[in-house]
Design a protein around this nucleic acid. Sequence first.
DNA 1: TTGCTGCTGGGCAAGCTGCTCATTTCTGCT
DNA 2: AGCAGAAATGAGCAGCTTGCCCAGCAGCAA
Lengths: 179, 179
Amino acid sequence: MFDELDVALLKTLRDHPRAGQLEVSRLTGVARATVQARIHKLESAGIVTGYGPDVDLRAAGYTVQAFVTLEIAQGALDAVQGELEGHPSVVEAFATTGTGDVLCRMAARSQEELQQALLDINRSPNIARSMSVVILSTVVETRSLPLLEAHARAGGRAPAYRRAHRAPGGRRAADDREA
Amino acid sequence: MFDELDVALLKTLRDHPRAGQLEVSRLTGVARATVQARIHKLESAGIVTGYGPDVDLRAAGYTVQAFVTLEIAQGALDAVQGELEGHPSVVEAFATTGTGDVLCRMAARSQEELQQALLDINRSPNIARSMSVVILSTVVETRSLPLLEAHARAGGRAPAYRRAHRAPGGRRAADDREA
DNA sequence: TTGCTGCTGGGCAAGCTGCTCATTTCTGCT
DNA sequence: AGCAGAAATGAGCAGCTTGCCCAGCAGCAA
């Protein structure tokens, strides 16, 4: 589905957020028209869904985060969805297999605020039980590129002379280092 | 820490990823210089950390995702961190309170691949036990703006005539609808 | 009232975007 | 082997945007 170039472009975009296509083109050593085409392809395939500003909740004052496992009443998923959606503290939520039914992540500015939010949610008649674990620290920062990179189609379509121009040891990997 | 305008700007940026400042300025009805200043402020405060391309793992073929709770050997967090970081399937990971020690999210292209990844991780001598729940569906899409919005300082500094221009019922909320 | 901060609106040079096109190169298929 | 199709390239152009600056005015607090 992907090849190295796609991943290289995504990486470059991530590391140089302000970079436009021209900048990306220069950084990756690919023609601007190619950059435009590839990115457009990724966007229309729905793989790149946007470039929304990445908000650091911790920096924004929401230093307390927790994962909460909810056990909900039979068939009440829709109702619960509405409730969770209505609660700003809920940052994301998923239906899962296992003993719990819904796993959601919450954020708050203090322990007290988190507790209050948990109480709010538990008040719902659709929630049978809840179990929460507080996040102490981040072990692996959220990332998706390594995954794509791991399965990237190695074959590039870059014309031969392109590669020739580059330093033998350099290659595209150079993009990351200068970040 | 925030006021309505900050949130409005972030919302606009999220809903119109390609929009530059001028576009944002027009969409929010705020002077361009103001947009520039506010966004710059958010960036230097570390609240907006970037505009990295949002990759939809599902669309990219990684349809299987799971949360895995790891129980690790005493004092082996650093070692585990290295291992998890080295494994592309690990999308993010956190140290938590509770019976488990580390909670990580993983993604794969199939059940088999996920299982393989889990086996890989369990092979580590630092991992005492692991428990995984598979994500069945998304209940609440990842979001952080509602949280900021909830605590946004209501007072704007916008000059009076600005407000006068707007429809009494409309307000800034209009930005979202046209998305 | 005064002073300070923040928003406004306007302007300028430089640079980028979106789009198109003719060529060249690579890949897969016959 | 050879060919057609797909992809990458480099170049060009009009129009718009960016980054920066500044003077003036509007809120807020002392």
